[in-house]
Design a protein around this nucleic acid. Sequence first.
DNA 1: GAGTAGAGATTGTTCAACAATCCATCAATC
DNA 2: GATTGATGGATTGTTGAACAATCTCTACTC
Lengths: 229, 229
Amino acid sequence: MAESWLDEIAAARHGLDRSSTAARVADLLREQITDGRLVPGARLPEEDLCRAVKVSRNTMREAFRLLVQERLLVHEFNRGVFVRRVTADGLADLYRVRRILECEGVRCAPDAPREALARLEAAVLDGERAAAAGRWADVGTADIRFHQALAALVGSPRVDEMIRHLLAEMRLVFHEMGSPREFHEPYLARNRSLCELIARGDTAAAERELRSYLDDAEAQLTKAYRAAE
Amino acid sequence: MAESWLDEIAAARHGLDRSSTAARVADLLREQITDGRLVPGARLPEEDLCRAVKVSRNTMREAFRLLVQERLLVHEFNRGVFVRRVTADGLADLYRVRRILECEGVRCAPDAPREALARLEAAVLDGERAAAAGRWADVGTADIRFHQALAALVGSPRVDEMIRHLLAEMRLVFHEMGSPREFHEPYLARNRSLCELIARGDTAAAERELRSYLDDAEAQLTKAYRAAE
DNA sequence: GAGTAGAGATTGTTCAACAATCCATCAATC
DNA sequence: GATTGATGGATTGTTGAACAATCTCTACTC
């Protein structure tokens, strides 16, 4: 195993040179969306964006396709692309799959590597620090990182990708209903206790707590959703 | 429910007029791949395909994107697109997620609508009929439909999409190792018994059987994989 | 007020060209 | 003889323009 550093280089290279213009444009748009500057339902006209970003229409369309694949945009034939608007049904489905993946993560916790558990703890800490400083947007980001780390306990690249897309859509939900503080504050303590239950190895109690956690969050969001209509 | 046929029309129309040329080209390629005429690892040169299908490079690239999203093709920057080649690691991950989704389907069986259970039964029957007639490729198709119906018991559009992509990749695995008969034949009886356990409502036994089923299949494929190297 | 016709705007698709990158080949050096 | 470096051909990435198809809104007719 004298050449193990070769593998590291091979892995690092992947993230370096792979940058097409389309991918960079997609990064740009993704940031606008996850930051909430592009609200759900907003239309993205090709030509305006091409002029703004100074790329050709073909390249812009390629960037669109990347974000459609991530479920951040939806493409309607002959009508254009829009920031995805999550419906009440979509929200229910979102939580259905979150329950499946995150609960599986909890069940896998005993077999998970230490780094994976450390990331869970780190996300909780980040959230608490951000709350103490009043940075509520960062609290939301930390919360998402926490749930991502939860599903990552499964140790499956494919599950990682699924949960990443799922939680990116959750960001859309949050932006569509505003008020990050009221929503995220109560869950800081629950994240902490969930993390401790897992660290203690009590996966059964952790799964129960997680389910009630997700039920509560879903009910709260659904209520806000129905009210918004 | 007097106007339920209206919904059917609405659904059918979706598949009719909303068909860009890129989507049709993608259909063409998808068929070539799932039928095994395009083997895993094969490169798809843009210009050759453009000339063959008589579409422009941009349209062809759009078709590529669609199939990349379905995980049938992989796109390497500045190198081209290739039929996905599933590695041994990828195979393990594939089964890890199949276990999660299909076992969840079994657990949801008591709450599933009758049509969903009927589709399960239908897939088993199709497989048995195809086997009796010696159509082993169709046996494989029926097997995939069976597992798709299993995950569909969850009743989540998102899970449906996940399992569809997963099983499309499984087709690649099958093609990479050939010999459909030897592999699929033993599982016909197990599909049948699994289906009966579910129909009887014994979800606990069904889940145990499904896990051992998937373990066996994974072990068999993994062995064949290692041998092929 | 409902329905229709048409103009203007936007998207779908194609084409041709050039730039950037990869790949195989060959020459040069040690 | 093997490794390194340069060369050229082939393929992909990106651009801009053009035209066709479709949608959307306005104005008009009844």
